[in-house]
Design a protein around this nucleic acid. Structure first.
Length: 427
RNA sequence: GGAGAGAUGGCCGAGUAGGUCGAAGGCGGUCGCCUGCUAAGCGAUUGUACAGGCUUCAAGGCCUGUACCGCGGGUUCGAAUCCCGCUCUCUCCGCCA
């Protein structure tokens, strides 16, 4: 969430930031509530002070053998007044909190203006678009023909947007996961964590999914458990309500997890194939940094994610999201888009964001710069490193051959028992 | 799932016939002294949040108050201490991958 002091002291700045996102925020109402809260606080704190002083006095009198009847009666009234005021404050704070928790992060100054994906700006491109001597086919056709992806049975067993991988497909998915994890652990210095897939609502608030985006998630009925939409959620919340030693920063974590998304409202958009599933695999990068380092760390993290695609030989480009296309918690985001030859388009395969202190403030994640100094909020970053299912799809399309077989990228072969090609049984 | 025990400050750990407890003591940290250096020793200091006031160009600093002894509620003039509910941890039993 945003700093309440920033809203108070500099509402025009906040307003400008939210406008860039295409939002008109009701800041007047907010400021009103805030002023009301503070005046109530002043009043009730004075009364509490009185109660504390007089109560102590009563104790002394009683010890001296006296019975201060009028004082006790007076304090009884004071206590009732305090109770009423506390109740009022709670109500105001609840409303204030609700508003604060539904305001998105402000875009960083380096983020371009714009209202949607069409205004995102390409910052670099890597690799040549794959060329074919035949018409490349979409990955779902290739996968079904090879018998390595089974959409139909996925629908039967679970429903639309669920899939079975089988045989070399299942192994390829697993190979990708291990390849990505090993790369980030061994070469980029990340520490692996394996998180819970179910988390509580407080965790979901910490990273910004709740209270605003409940309909995007799967919720376990009758419990406070939600299926994670990304490992970013549990991993960022790892250090919730903690004060980290400044020497530990920056912290790099990498986590594999399955991800679960309700995809409400996504009907009809890219429904085919592996692109948009209710459950998919992802290797996620999460960083906790000092505020002054976070933008440099964002660049590094993006490069770390890009290297996955370079090693796999998949052509891609990096775009910086415009203000209007930014996610709720992000101040700046780079999307990495991989080339899909059948559709002739680049598609998102990774999203690397700096959330600055937006999540840290919600989740109360702080660090002590040095033993003498006061705690400060860390900056949190997260990025896909990268989405596994989409990578598998991209491999099928970019590495397909005319006979329907698919070459396995060399870096993955050690993870595939040396297998070099996936071909139809019997061919 | 059943039975029992517990949850106190960065960590460990006192404190329950309710009042002077933001909380003994220790460790760790910081500052100073001492030592040729290091270690040891001596002394001082050391929580967080919110609100108000003072101060600074600012970062920040100072003062006052309030809250916080797992979380939420209750009793009381007054609760770390009493009562109720919940959560989590540990031990034993059952079950299970």
């Amino acid at each position: 969430m945003l700093d309440i002091k920033l809203l108070r002291d500099n509402p025009e700045l906040v307003d400008r930031g939210l406008k860039r996102r295409g939002l008109a925020a009701p800041l007047d109402h907010f400021l009103e509530l805030d002023a009301r809260r503070r005046s109530l606080l002043t009043e009730v704190e004075k009364l509490k002070h009185k109660r504390n002083v007089v109560s102590e006095e009563i104790g002394k009198l009683k010890k001296a053998g006296k019975e201060p009847v009028e004082l006790i009666a007076e304090m009884r009234e004071v206590s009732q007044r305090i109770k009423a005021l506390d109740e009022e404050i709670r109500a105001v704070e609840e409303e204030l909190d609700k508003e604060l928790l539904t305001l998105p992060n402000l875009p960083h100054s380096s983020v371009p203006d714009g209202s949607g994906p069409e205004d995102n700006v390409v910052v670099r491109t890597w690799g040549e678009k794959t060329s074919f001597s035949f018409t490349p086919r979409p990955h779902w056709e290739i996968g079904e023909e090879l018998g390595i992806i089974d959409f139909e049975r996925g629908s039967k067993v679970a429903g639309a947007r669920f899939v079975f991988y089988r045989g070399a497909g299942a192994r390829l998915e697993r190979a990708l996961i291990n390849f990505m994890l090993d790369l980030h652990i061994e070469k980029h210095g990340y520490t692996e964590v394996f998180p819970p897939y179910l988390v509580n609502s407080q965790t979901m608030i910490g990273t910004g999914q709740l209270p605003k985006f409940a309909e995007d998630m799967f919720h376990v009925t009758g419990t406070d458990y939600y299926l994670i939409p990304t490992a970013e959620v549990p991993v960022t919340n790892l250090y919730r309500d903690e004060i980290l030693d400044g020497d530990l920063l920056p912290i790099y974590h990498v986590a594999y997890s399955a991800c679960f998304r309700a995809e409400a409202g996504a009907a009809g958009r890219e429904t085919r194939g592996l692109i948009r599933q209710h459950q998919f695999n992802k290797v996620e990068l999460v960083k906790f940094t000092r505020p002054e380092d976070s933008y440099e760390e964002l660049e590094k993290m993006t490069r770390d994610a890009e290297e996955v695609l370079r090693l796999l030989g998949l052509p891609y480009r990096v775009v910086v999201l415009c203000a209007g296309d930014l996610g709720f918690s992000a101040a700046k985001t780079y999307d990495i888009e991989v080339w899909f030859p059948a559709a002739g388009t680049y598609r998102e395969i990774s999203s690397c964001s700096n959330c600055e202190d937006f999540q840290a403030r919600r989740a109360n994640i702080r660090f002590r710069p040095s033993p003498k100094e006061k705690p400060r909020y860390v900056h949190t970053l997260n990025g896909s490193g990268v989405a596994v299912g989409r990578t598998l799809a991209a491999i099928l399309e970019n590495y397909q051959r005319e006979d329907g077989s698919v070459v396995i990228p060399p870096v993955l072969r050690p993870y595939m028992g040396g297998q070099e090609v996936i071909a139809r049984k019997g061919s």
